[in-house]
Write a protein that binds this DNA or RNA. Sequence first.
DNA 1: GACGGCATGTAACCAGTTACATGATTAT
DNA 2: ATAATCATGTAACTGGTTACATGCCGTC
Lengths: 185, 185
Amino acid sequence: MALEHAILVSLSERAGSGYELARRFDKSIGFFWAATHQQIYRVLARMAEAGWVSAEEIAQQGRPDKKVYTVSAAGHAELERWLAEPLEPPSFRDELGVKLRGAELGGAVDSVLKEVERHRELHAERLAIYRAIERRDFPAPDELTGRQLHQYLVLRGGVLAEQSFMQWCDEVIQAISNDMRGTSR
Amino acid sequence: MALEHAILVSLSERAGSGYELARRFDKSIGFFWAATHQQIYRVLARMAEAGWVSAEEIAQQGRPDKKVYTVSAAGHAELERWLAEPLEPPSFRDELGVKLRGAELGGAVDSVLKEVERHRELHAERLAIYRAIERRDFPAPDELTGRQLHQYLVLRGGVLAEQSFMQWCDEVIQAISNDMRGTSR
DNA sequence: GACGGCATGTAACCAGTTACATGATTAT
DNA sequence: ATAATCATGTAACTGGTTACATGCCGTC
């Protein structure tokens, strides 16, 4: 369970409302931790009850009121506690892999191949977004220090993961196309 | 939701009991789809009710009875249906990334760096397992066809993912060590 | 006698998803 | 008119985790 902690990180960087957090989870921090607004509101309520964040209601003109959340001392302490804690190795969930492994059994090699091609394009788009952020925010990565360096490294992880996934897609497309030509000859 | 489908794939390859499935999910198919025995039993019961699998109770001597599950025609049809269906792009959950991004805020750069080093070793071990399977089961990958080729490609995906993760770890370790030396000088 | 393997499960809980609901303002 | 944006939430459901329970067999 780390949505709490992802929120603590994001709110530490900048205070914000549930809605604003949901926007951030559509990009930036959301690129490596997905969350919907419903979940964010619920977790935020729980965190407020635990005293990790405090909410300040802000009236706005022309817009609904909003609650701006700030990390409290207890929240900061919790973040530190969590950071020091060892992390479980993440458990794999590779649905495309399951499909590929089952393709032959269901006579669906062709449609799984199309899926791999489609996912290759999805990941190419994602990679392009990362590259654009890289160019815009980190033009000189060698000179980064501290928090900016860490942010860059996280983004770099996204770049490497996407590249490696695309390479896999290419190998799969090549090998399977080849195999289909060979076996139908 | 694809545990059902992962089980259909595994049972299509070979019939087996819930316990045997749980063993398989500790290795082979479990390397890219994690599941515990409790979950497997529950899903298996649901699948039997839906008619996707049929159970045959087998009495054993010296051991508890077991129920051996076989995929039915309806189960095969469901597998085909699922294979033809497009797949959602998987949503990211990178807890190490969240930690790295929060490290500076919690004054925990040092302990996060140690976590990265630890996870590098975990993934090195995982990679070694994949490599061993590669050598044992697929000594001549260029000659593979059909189901074996697909199995190999899934494994290949694991190899690429682990390699790329390790490369990221190395970059992180290098960059942060360097940064800590620089800023404390 | 204790532990590990075989074999099955129940119960409680937690996290995450999907659908629905409300209501004002601004841009097309 | 209609859709998008801002802003908050409830309710029902699904999937997954953790803890607990049972009982026999073979080995150390």
